[in-house]
């Protein structure tokens, strides 16, 4: 299974194997990664699965969608160019080795 590295705001690193087709948010929540809430269950409604993608190039990540874009303007932590909602990042083989940093707050 391809893996994703989560780096918490305090520097703690967690590497997870993520099944293809599962969102990064779901993988993090199911493995109790602190710092990703995903309270709305992936409905692009709560903006509590906000991540900063550290190495976006070459992974074929989907473009930021219209609703995601609006919600990224309203996250608890500041929006940066590399901001994404991790519920919208659905795992593919090509995404192996992705690294995401977690913001200091989700709500």
């Amino acid at each position: 299974m391809p893996n994703v590295t989560f780096i918490a705001d305090d520097g703690t690193e967690t590497v997870l194997d993520v099944a293809v087709g599962t969102s990064i948010m779901e993988a993090a929540v199911m493995s109790n990664v602190d710092g990703i809430m995903g309270e709305c269950g992936g409905s692009i409604n709560c903006a509590t699965c906000h991540v900063y993608v550290q190495n976006a190039g070459g992974f074929g990540l989907p473009d930021v969608g219209e609703v995601e874009n609006e919600m990224l303007d309203a996250t608890a932590a500041e929006r940066r160019p590399e901001s994404r909602l991790s519920c919208q990042l659905i795992m593919t083989e090509a995404m192996a080795g992705l690294i995401v940093r977690l913001p200091d707050a989700q709500y």
Binding site: A47, T48, E66, E70, D73, A74, T75, A76
Partner: peptide
């Protein structure tokens, strides 16, 4: 319409 309401009720506003 959904997006307008989502933003009005977002973490940023709620904080």
């Amino acid at each position: 319409t959904r997006t307008v309401l989502s933003r009005a009720l977002s973490p940023k506003v709620l904080r």
